[in-house]
């Protein structure tokens, strides 16, 4: 019998039990004692432990530093290509929502800062020097998944022609049903050639987005039916529908201001 076990027996005896009668009780107490000792050992701060903690901390710091460096590097390298890709997307979106035009549309764009830190850009499309239409690019931070960005085009008289959401992070299948335009195809017509309707109905249908068509900016701001307006949202995606409505209303307000300034509408 070694000293540890002797100690245990003495401890056990001091507690008033009779450990030599009950083997399991003695065993239990011995294990408790060993556990207590181990815990004490774990609690004790030794130089080796301090070194280990520092080592772990520094290792984790290094991992984070390397990861941050890699991310910074990737961000820097891809900044220009990302901007170019975005601009290309913007140009193709503008071509889709506007009637044919032949002026340098990006150069004559008017950027503006609106209340609520919302940036907007107004593009004026001209065909042979005559205004063919307007397009307003604007964002709404009220989307379900955060910021949503849209492009909405107007006729020269200020009626909505076409409306697309260019960037969003809505839930796929729910919120994205509001923001995305989708063709309805059947298996029978799957391989049939798709006929594109003339402008402004050239885009696939979008139930909420199409409700804004041919509304005049004079009637803005528009609201959802649940808030007393006449836009039908999609059930299950009220927040997305509301954000889309807000986005369109904001764009309309911007164009209304411009047209009023130019005296084209009252």
């Amino acid at each position: 019998m070694n000293t540890e076990e002797k100690n245990v027996r003495m401890d056990a005896g001091a507690n008033g039990n009779e450990p030599w009668m009950d083997v399991s009780a003695a065993e239990r107490q011995r294990q408790e004692y060993l556990k207590r000792k181990q815990e004490e050992q774990e609690r004790k701060v030794t130089p080796a432990k301090i070194r280990n903690i520092f080592y772990l901390g520094i290792f984790l710091f290094l991992v984070c530093a390397v990861a941050a460096t890699v991310m910074c590097f990737a961000n820097g390298v891809t900044r220009i290509p990302r901007r170019q890709a975005k601009q290309q997307k913007l140009v193709s979106a503008l071509n889709e929502v506007l009637p044919p035009y032949n002026n340098a549309i990006l150069k004559t764009a008017e950027s503006k800062e609106n209340p609520g830190n919302i940036k907007s850009t107004l593009y004026t499309a001209k065909k042979d020097g005559k205004v063919a239409g307007y397009a307003v690019q604007i964002s709404a931070p009220e989307g379900y998944g955060g910021k949503m960005e849209g492009l909405i085009s107007f006729s020269p008289e200020g009626r909505v022609c076409s409306f697309v959401i260019t960037e969003h992070s809505e839930t796929p299948g729910l919120g994205s049903e509001v923001t995305d335009r989708k063709d309805v195809r059947t298996f029978a017509t799957l391989f049939a050639e798709k006929k594109r309707k003339p402008f402004p109905e050239n885009l696939p249908p979008g139930k909420v987005l199409d409700q804004f068509r041919s509304r005049s900016v004079k009637t803005a701001p528009w609201r959802l039916r649940t808030e007393g307006g006449d836009i039908d949202g999609r059930s299950g995606a009220t927040i997305s529908s509301k954000a889309v409505t807000l986005l369109a209303s904001r764009a309309a307000e911007i164009l209304k201001e411009k047209l009023q300034k130019e005296g084209k509408i009252k």
């Binding site: 991310m71 891809t78 290509p81 990302r82």
Partner: peptide, 12 residues
């Protein structure tokens, strides 16, 4: 994050 950035830049 890096994959996200690269995809955004090069594979539209």
């Amino acid at each position: 994050t890096v994959v996200d950035l690269l995809m955004q830049a090069y594979t539209g």
